[in-house]
Design a protein around this nucleic acid. Structure first.
Length: 458
RNA sequence: UCCUCGAUAGCUCAAUGGGUAGAGCACCCGGCUGUUAACCGGGGGGUUACAGGUUCGAGUCCUGUUCGAGGAGCCA
C-alpha cells in the first residue's frame, strides 16, 4: 500500500494505493456507491461495492456529505466509464476513513449566481472549473519566470509603497505613511528603468493596484503584472521579445494543463495557432479598419472574423465612433482582435493620449513608439509597452507638458544623465492572460481572491 | 460618474389582467450492481431586499432607499 496522488493513478494500475482528499460528488445505486474524490491534483471516481467493504462501511459511504475529508484505500483500475480528471481510472475501494464529516455544503453541482459564488469564494475555489483556472494561472506565473530567467532577465523587486504616481494620481489607492501621503504602486516600471542600468535586463513581478471605478469583465483593483525592461532595446526589438514571451506562456499552458483546458471546454486549436510573428498594425491602419467595420455594420452588412464567423459582442456600431487622436475604447479592441487569428500589435499611438515617458517618433512627434498587444477572441489588451524617452531634456519637457510635479521625478530624469541608452519595456497582466488562455468570460475567476469595485470579501 | 437590467425557500428560478407562494437542486427517509448535474417514491423548509403609498385585497402597481449584475469612460 502506497500513498498516491490522483494525477499519478494512470501509472499505478493494478496497485493498491491510498488517496487523501475530499468528497466532490456522490451517487449511489443499490449496492454501489460512486464517490468522486478530489485531492488537489485531480478527481477520481472511487467505487464502493457493498459485498467488498461490508454493510457497516457501505452505510458510512452511502451517507457521506459533500466535501467530507477522506482517507481511502483501494485498487487502481482502468475503466473508460470512470469520470474525473484525468478520468478513465477509478479506485476499487477496500477501506475508507472519514477524517471529518462535512456540514451541509452550500455550493451544489447546479448553477449559482455571481454574488453567491463570490461571497463563498473561499469554498468556490474547490470547484473543478475554478481549480482548473487557478492551476493554469500557476503555470502561467511559472512560465513567466522561467522564460525571463532563461533569457538573461534578472528579477528585481520594486516597491509597493510609493511616493508618487507614474501616470497621474486619479487611480491610486492612498495610504497614510507616518503622516505623509503614500500610494500603492500601479506599476514598477520607473524603478525598472533604474535597475536596468545595474543589471541590463530586469523584470518585476507582483501585485499592482488601481483605484479605477471600473465594473467590467476585464478589471480588478488588485492584479498581478510582470514588467520586463531592457537596456539597449528599441521598439522593434521589444516586439520580438514580447511575441516570443507570449507564445511561450500559451504553449506551456497547452502542454502542462491539457486536462484543465479540456475541463474548461477551451478550444485549444485557437491557442495552438499562437506563433510568431504576430501581426503588427499601426494606429493609423487600425483606425481605417475600425471605420470600415463600423460603416459596414451600419449598412447592415455582416462582418466576419478571422474564422469566417460573424463578429461577436458588438451591441452598437455607434460605440465604434473614433477620430484620430482618440485612444481605443473597449469596443474598438473587441472588433480589432476578432479580425486576427493570433495576438496583434497596435503601434504608434498618438503621443498625447499615452504616458509622458514614451519616445515620440523623431520624424512624426505626434505619435510615439508605443505598442499594445491585443489578445484574440475579444479579450483585448494584455500588454502595454513602449520605447522610453532616453534624453533628459525631452523627458523633462514632456513632464512639464503633462503638468506633472517635476520634483517627484527628479531621480527618474537623473537616470538619463549617466550613460543613458535606448531602452524599452512592457507590462503583461496575468489575470487577463489567464482569462484568455482559459477562455473564461471574467478576470475575477483568474484570481484566487479577486479584489473588485465593491468587493473586498472574503 | 453615467446607461440598462435585477432582488421570491440554503441555491437556481416560476407565479396569466392585482385574488390561497410553486418547481428543480441541496438536505432527511426508503428503493435500485455502472452512476456521469443519475433516476424513482416520501418528507421538512418562506417576514417575496428595506421603507412608505394605492387597493376590499400587492410577490405583482407607484415613490424612495439599499444591494447586485452587465456595459461606457479609464486601463493590464
Amino acid at each position: 500500500m502506497t500513498l498516491a496522488r490522483i494525477q499519478d493513478l494512470p501509472r499505478l494500475v493494478g496497485e493498491t494505493v491510498t488517496l487523501q482528499g475530499w468528497l466532490y460528488n456522490r451517487t449511489s445505486k443499490g449496492k454501489l456507491v460512486f464517490l468522486q474524490v478530489r485531492d488537489g491534483t485531480g478527481i477520481c471516481q472511487c467505487v464502493v461495492f457493498r459485498p467488498n467493504v461490508g454493510d457497516e462501511l457501505f452505510a458510512i459511504a452511502d451517507k457521506l456529505t459533500l466535501e467530507s475529508s477522506l482517507i481511502i484505500t483501494g485498487t487502481v483500475r482502468a475503466d473508460a466509464r470512470a469520470p474525473g480528471v484525468p478520468g478513465g481510472y477509478e479506485l476499487d475501494v477496500q477501506t475508507l476513513q472519514v477524517v471529518h464529516r462535512a456540514e451541509e455544503y452550500p455550493i451544489g453541482p447546479k448553477e449559482h449566481g455571481v454574488e453567491f459564488l463570490m461571497d463563498h469564494r473561499h469554498l468556490w475555489i474547490r470547484s473543478s472549473r475554478q481549480w482548473a483556472v487557478l492551476r493554469v494561472r500557476a503555470t502561467v506565473m511559472r512560465a513567466i519566470r522561467a522564460w525571463l530567467d532563461a533569457h538573461g532577465f534578472l528579477e528585481v523587486t520594486t516597491p509597493i509603497l510609493t511616493p508618487s504616481a507614474a501616470e497621474g494620481t486619479t487611480t491610486l489607492f492612498e495610504v497614510d505613511y507616518f503622516g505623509e501621503k503614500a500610494y500603492l504602486a500601479q506599476t514598477g516600471q520607473l524603478y525598472n528603468e533604474a535597475t536596468i542600468f545595474s543589471f541590463g535586463r530586469v523584470y518585476c513581478f507582483g501585485p499592482t493596484f488601481r483605484a479605477e471605478k471600473s465594473k467590467t469583465r476585464r478589471h480588478l483593483t488588485e492584479f498581478w503584472m510582470v514588467e520586463p525592461e531592457i537596456a539597449f532595446c528599441d521598439l522593434d526589438q521589444l516586439l520580438e521579445i514580447e511575441e516570443q514571451f507570449v507564445t511561450h506562456l500559451v504553449h506551456t499552458a497547452l502542454r502542462e494543463n491539457a486536462n484543465e483546458l479540456k475541463l474548461l471546454g477551451r478550444d485549444t486549436r485557437k491557442l495552438e495557432r499562437v506563433q510568431p510573428p504576430f501581426p503588427r498594425i499601426t494606429y493609423d491602419e487600425a483606425l481605417e479598419r475600425l471605420k470600415d467595420v463600423q460603416a459596414r455594420l451600419q449598412r447592415g452588412e455582416t462582418v466576419l472574423n478571422c474564422d469566417g464567423e460573424p463578429l461577436q459582442d458588438i451591441p452598437d456600431p455607434a460605440l465604434l465612433d473614433i477620430t484620430w487622436g482618440m485612444d481605443f475604447g473597449s469596443p474598438h479592441e473587441t472588433v480589432l482582435t476578432q479580425l486576427f487569428d493570433r495576438p496583434v500589435f497596435v503601434t504608434g499611438f498618438p503621443t498625447a493620449v499615452k504616458a509622458f515617458y514614451m519616445q515620440p517618433y523623431p520624424d512624426r512627434p505626434e505619435i510615439c513608439k508605443s505598442a499594445d498587444l491585443l489578445a484574440p477572441e475579444g479579450y483585448g489588451e494584455i500588454i502595454g509597452g513602449s520605447e522610453r524617452i532616453s534624453d533628459a531634456a525631452l523627458l523633462e519637457q514632456r513632464i512639464r507638458e503633462q503638468g506633472l510635479p517635476l520634483e517627484a521625478y527628479r531621480w527618474y530624469i537623473d537616470l538619463r544623465r549617466y550613460g543613458s541608452v535606448p531602452h524599452s519595456g512592457f507590462g503583461l497582466g496575468v489575470e487577463r492572460t489567464v482569462a484568455w488562455i482559459c477562455g473564461i468570460d471574467h478576470v475575477r475567476e483568474a484570481s484566487p481572491f479577486p479584489r473588485l469595485l465593491n468587493r473586498i470579501y472574503p
